[in-house]
Amino acid sequence: MPTRTVAVGSASGLHARPAKLFVEAAAAAPVKVTIRVGDRKPVPAKSMLGVLALGAKQGTEVILEADGDGAEEALNGLAALLARDLDASDA
């Protein structure tokens, strides 16, 4: 299954605003994407509660997985988003 491992780039971690932006992007993806930390259970990337409960901090490596048409593209986009510092952008 297509997979991406990426370190969270946002200064505050995957919380608050960065989590909101990530979840919104995952919900808009054409495939079902999951996210997990290490060997823990994967959660749907479009679940705000699940993503928050990962407790991922800045620098925490998270693993994204998806399958199906457009999975590679969706993962590339989401991985790039996670790697950015979403606290910094005004967009």
């Binding site: 605003r17 959660v43 749907p44 705000m48 509660l49 699940g50 928050l52």
Partner: peptide
Amino acid sequence: AEVLRAEAMMADDEAL
């Protein structure tokens, strides 16, 4: 407004 929207997203959750 931003915190309220974030809370709304938490309640509107497929996994929940």
